Simulated scan of single mutants.
Amino acid sequence: MFTGIIETLGVVQEVKKEQDNIHITIDSSITGELKIDQSVAHNGVCLTVVAIADHCYTVTAIGETIKKTNLGYWQVGDSVNLERAMKLGDRLDGHIVQGHVDQIGTCVAVEETNGSWAYTFEYDPSLQNITIEKGSITVNGVSLTVVDSGKNEFSVAIIPYTHEYTNFKNFVVGTKVNLEFDVIGKYVSRLYSNK
């Protein structure tokens, strides 16, 4: 379980394909605090630490994860939003994030708005995921509030802190992002579609 409050950025050091899997090595300031078998959200994707060496650690993504996320686009040098799993008893500062990405979205607009930034994302509506205005959405692991909501798109507003300390600052039109829709909204949507 995660909150969508990013702890730090990591940098991809190696991407190694093995059959349908990808092994990704990340350089991070939190590596020294990690242990083998620990869950870490990478741009919102929950992955297990499988190796640690010096200031880098490695995670493995299987084919199913690669199909639903932007991991297949990662290259050496890319920055990655990182968050360790929440501890029981901690405050829930973002919203409930499972680290189970629902689908990929595409950035279709970036606008600087006098001290903040507005980003608009499109997604495939055939998967029946939904957003609502003032509802929660996770973009690359960042817990956000939806500003505007359409059938297959939504926008969010980013404060300067989030812009500086996440990989949002690297987004341009066409950037592929991981989307995890609000878990409560998913359950409600499923209940209504089964009637």
Rank of each mutant, 00 (worst) to 15 (best):
I6Y: 04
S39G: 04
G63F: 10
G63W: 12
I5H: 00
Q98G: 15
K134T: 12
V172H: 10
S143D: 10
Y165M: 09
A118H: 07
S126G: 02
Y165I: 13
V12Q: 04
E7L: 03
L144G: 00
I5Q: 00
H163Y: 15
I5R: 01
T3P: 01
H95N: 04
T131R: 08
V156H: 07
M1P: 08
V147Y: 11
G185Y: 05
A61R: 08
Y165S: 02
G44Y: 04
V50L: 06
S143Q: 06
G77P: 13
V40Q: 04
G99K: 05
D78F: 13
I96A: 02
G135K: 12
T138F: 07
G174R: 00
S189T: 15
H163C: 00
S116K: 11
G115L: 13
L47D: 00
E153L: 11
L144T: 04
G10L: 03
D93S: 12
S79R: 07
S28Q: 08
A41C: 03
G105W: 02
V139L: 12
A109V: 04
E64C: 02
G105P: 00
Q128E: 15
Y57R: 00
I104V: 15
T145S: 02
T175R: 06
K17W: 03
F181N: 04
I132L: 12
N70A: 15
N129Y: 15
V59L: 06
S126H: 09
Y57C: 03
C107Y: 02
S193M: 06
N152M: 12
Q103T: 14
S149G: 03
R190A: 11
Y192T: 13
G44I: 05
E122T: 15
N194K: 15
E7G: 05
V45Y: 01
L92K: 02
G94T: 07
P160T: 15
E180L: 07
H100F: 10
G89T: 11
V139F: 01
T60H: 01
T48V: 10
I137K: 03
K68A: 05
M1K: 11
P125V: 12
N81P: 06
T65R: 08
G135A: 06
S39D: 07
T120G: 00
V177L: 07
L179T: 01
S155E: 09
H23F: 15
N81K: 11
G99D: 02
N81V: 09
T8E: 13
V97Y: 04
E18M: 08
V188G: 01
Q103N: 06
V40K: 03
P125W: 09
D124R: 04
I137F: 00
G99M: 01
Y192A: 11
V101K: 10
V11M: 12
E133V: 07
E7W: 01
C46A: 09
R84Q: 12
V188E: 09
Y73H: 14
A85P: 03
I104Y: 01
Y165T: 14
T162D: 08
A118W: 06
Q38I: 04
V15T: 11
